[in-house]
């Protein structure tokens, strides 16, 4: 009987270990995108870039980001193809963007600026940013 209990011990210990390990996962909440929900409440855009169809920047100078007015003012070069632009947002740690940017974006309707919402790391704060484009004069 002694021999028998020895052999049973090994798998039993391994089983317990695996249960203990898997239980750790319960402490990390994730959102609908599988991203970690953290405690951070900051919610702002830290940098903004705009690329043309050739993936080269179309800005004439750095974008002016106003975190109070929640606007991003960008002047683009004369002759920019406004229908085929690739915006790039840099956000505060753990924040995310809604809606997601999936490819080229049409900015040609200058009278109605496009807007994106920044969602904080704790997913409790949401701030909509308007991207206002002006075209450089020739």
């Amino acid at each position: 009987m002694k021999m028998k209990s020895k052999y049973i011990m090994i798998p039993a210990v391994m089983l317990m270990l695996s249960i203990a390990w898997s239980s750790c996962k319960k402490d990390n909440p994730v959102d609908e995108d599988g991203l970690l929900i953290t405690t951070r409440a900051q919610c702002y855009v830290s940098n903004f870039e705009l690329l043309g169809s050739d993936f080269v920047t179309v800005r004439t100078k750095p974008a002016a980001i106003d975190t109070t007015a929640q606007t991003i003012n960008v002047e683009v070069m004369f002759g920019t193809d406004l229908k085929n632009l690739y915006p790039q947002f840099e956000l505060v740690t753990d924040a995310k963007l809604d809606p997601k940017i999936t490819g080229k974006t049409d900015f040609s309707d200058l009278a109605n600026p496009r807007s994106w919402t920044v969602v904080s790391g704790n997913r409790q704060v949401r701030k909509a940013y308007k991207v206002i484009i002006t075209v450089q004069k020739r």
């Binding site: 070069m77 004369f78 002759g79 450089q136």
Partner: peptide, 9 residues
């Protein structure tokens, strides 16, 4: 042009 980057087009 001095006001914008036109160059080769």
């Amino acid at each position: 042009l001095t006001t914008s980057a036109f160059n080769h087009a």
